[in-house]
């Protein structure tokens, strides 16, 4: 019954979050700020992880395919598919859940325990709308861009390291990553990303918003935010894949 209680409270919070803003211009400013902090702020970590993981995925593929029967460009094909289908949308989103989720939960949780949320409410401001809506919308705008970037950087990392290590030639790698390319796979990856962005921000905001107690509980909320958004990402990953790819 506990999860039903959480789900109900989550649903009501989200419903209240998307009520009409008191003043559009202030929400817009907040939205732009959040795009910078959640999106641009995650550029570094996403880039580093994508380049290195792309490199490893390429080398591992080459290692697995060391057989005269498999053409060398298969390394490119496999690297591309792993990165676009699973690594960028799912693994990078899991990492974003850790970075952005804990950040959101602790920020909103701190505002809760220091009564800043109460202060907003007293002014007649819809605190969940003002605090949460811009974050959700900013993530839904920025994360897909980050994921596309991550795909490019992953493929780039694979190219550089794969070629340097002699695992694959430039020609075969490029041939492989363009071979039998299906745009639908990118659609699938982006659909996943949209849903994961929503999960990360809304679930983390939920845990932050309903923090009660003090600094200790803020820490606890931020852990819960990361754990629950990660679990939900994994769960929805299975569901969406089942729906879209089978």
């Amino acid at each position: 019954m506990n999860w039903l209680y959480h789900f109900g409270r989550y649903y009501l919070l989200i419903k209240r979050t998307f009520k009409r803003p008191e003043k559009f211009s202030i929400y817009w400013k907040q939205y732009v700020l959040q795009m910078d902090s959640l999106g641009i702020g995650s550029l570094g970590i996403v880039s580093i992880i994508s380049i290195f993981m792309g490199a490893v995925i390429c080398i591992q593929s080459a290692f697995g395919f060391e057989s005269p029967w498999i053409p060398l460009y298969a390394v490119g094909v496999s690297t591309r598919d792993i990165i676009t289908l699973e690594f960028s949308p799912t693994v990078v989103c899991l990492i974003l859940a850790g970075k952005v989720g804990s950040n959101i939960a602790s920020e909103i949780g701190t505002m809760r325990v220091t009564e800043q949320i109460d202060a907003l409410e007293i002014m007649g401001i819809n605190s969940s709308g003002y605090l949460i809506a811009p974050k959700i919308l900013a993530a839904v705008t920025m994360f897909p861009l980050l994921i596309v970037l991550s795909m490019f950087l992953g493929l780039f990392g694979g190219y550089v390291v794969g070629v340097a290590a002699g695992a694959v030639t430039p020609y075969e790698y490029i041939y492989g990553i363009t071979y039998d390319f299906r745009p639908y796979n990118i659609v699938y990856a982006l659909v996943k990303t949209y849903i994961f962005s929503f999960i990360i921000t809304s679930v983390s905001a939920y845990h932050g918003y309903f923090t009660n107690g003090g600094a200790l509980e803020v820490g606890r909320s931020s852990t819960k935010a990361v754990v629950y958004s990660s679990i939900l990402i994994l769960l929805f990953n299975v569901i969406i894949t089942q729906i879209l790819l089978s």
């Binding site: 008191e22 003043k23 220091t114 009564e115 800043q116 109460d118 202060a119 007293i122 007649g124 401001i125």
Partner: peptide
């Protein structure tokens, strides 16, 4: 129409003093 001073202050710590004070004015 309610103004409230909280026991702990409850100032918005991401905003300057001036932004804190004018925040409701900007909103409404």
């Amino acid at each position: 129409q309610i103004g409230m001073l909280f026991q702990g202050g409850a100032l918005f710590d991401s905003m300057t003093v001036e932004q804190n004070i004018v925040f409701p004015l900007s909103m409404f």
